[in-house]
Every structure is written in structure tokens, then in C-alpha cells.
Amino acid sequence: MTSQATRPIRLGFEHLSKSYPSSRRAGGNAAGHLVLKDIHLDVFEGEFLVIVGPSGCGKSTLLDLAAGLSLPTDGRIVLDGRAVTKPGPERSVVFQNYALFPWKTVFDNIAFALSAAGVPRRAQLERVRRVLALVGLEDAADRYPHQLSGGMKQRVAIARSLSLEPEVLLMDEPFGALDAQTREGLQAELRRLWRRHNMTIIFITHDIDEALSLGQRVAIMGRAPGRIVDVVQLPFQPDAAVDEIRTHPEYGELRRYIRAVLSQPDAVTRAVA
């Protein structure tokens, strides 16, 4: 824990609140419907942080704020010391439903993001090739999304985000729509990519096992309003395989604890350090 404190902060959520203007019919008060309440969380450089929470707790809203897709009602998000006010190529988002453009080939989907980020045409070819190789899809460059399986689509989406060489990778339940086997394969692949490229990743999920096998730290969110209930430091080695993590002596206890916090955020006392 002490080494954590000295690591530089890449992205900071500073006392963040978000409320939507409420319609009177919905029974909201004058202040609006509060979605996120006083989120305060630092994400360190090169860290893999997983945010786990029940559906409807505002975790996707939190990611949208980090991406700059919407603005907080209160507080701010700071990236490398500067406040985030709009989207930028230094923060790239991977969505649950891939968000690939069906009218573009795999190659063009990635090149499109590079163009949007202002990467010159000449440099694009090489970069697209490189990231496709990274996710093992060199041969799929000329295919259209509808010709790919779900797992391949998500790998293309990840490649597209990686091609931008972002400082922070924001992942919004990226494996939620995949079957269990494909999901495990991609989890392992993502961990490998993270180790190799020293990326900062904020990963959102509602799956406790996914949270435990991917992250270094797990932030647990509560619902109504969305808030951080606890942040757990995981004891697993960064290069541990998923199977090693699952059989780790503390795994069961951590799993039980997170599950208890998720179901009753206010009644549980911390059992693990």
C-alpha cells in the first residue's frame, strides 16, 4: 500500500456528483435526480482498476464522465493535472456492444479513429497493422464487422482503442455480451496487453469474478445514489494466470466480501485488508 501512495496519479475523480434534471412526474425534487454522489477516487499510472457495481448504479455514467462525453454537476475529473471537459484521444473507450461501424472494414474502422485523432494517413497503415497483430487479427483487416464473431468484434474494438495509444483505456462492460469461453480468453488477453504496454485501465463490470481476475484494485459501487462504497486492493501478482488467481487462498474470502458489500452496502464491515 505504501508504494501505491508514491505512484503518480493519472486520472482523478475529485468529489464528483452528477444529477439529471428531473421531470416532476418522476417525483424528483428541485435539485434533480442524483445519479452519482461525491465520487472521489484516484487512478494511478499503469494501474488496472476495476469498478464493480449493480446495474443502475451509475457506473456507465461515471465512465462517460471520464471519457468527457458528459460533464459532472459537481466536482471534476483531472487527467495528468488538467481538468477533463471534452473527449480526447488520450482517453479511449471500449463499449459493451463494440460500436464498430458496419459500413467500414476492420481496417477502416481503426483508420477512422486514427483520422479523427489527427494521425496522418501515411502513419495509419503501419499503426493499424501493428494493433491488429497485437490482437491476433492480421488476416481480418478487409472483413466487415458482420463477418466477425462477437469475440473478434470486441478484439477489433480493443485494437481500435489501442491504436490511439491512449493514456487511459476506459472499458464499459466490454465482455458482457460474450459467451463464457470467449470472455475468459479475452480477459487473459487483456491482462497480457496491459502488462506488456503498461497501460492505465479503468474497467467496468457487474461480474465479481471478472473484477477479481482482471484488476489490481476493485472499487465497489452502491446504488441510489451511485457512490463508491469501498476500494479493495487485490493480493494477486500482476503476471498471475486466471487459474492461479481463482485458486488463491484469499480469492473466496474476497469474493464473499464483495458480494456482501454489493448486496448490503451499509451493513458490512471490512473483513480483509
Binding site: 490482437v135 491476433g136 481480418a140 472483413r143 458482420h146 463477418q147 466477425l148 464473431s149 469475440g151 473478434m152 478484439r155 469461453q181 470467449t182 475468459e184 480468453g185 479475452l186 487473459a188 488477453e189
Partner: peptide, 12 residues
Amino acid sequence: MSASVTDGYART
């Protein structure tokens, strides 16, 4: 990369 090999191109 074992999982990546098994999920082949979707048959349309």
C-alpha cells in the same frame, strides 16, 4: 491466444 484461434469467422 488459444481462445482466439477457436472462435473462427462467423458463418453468414
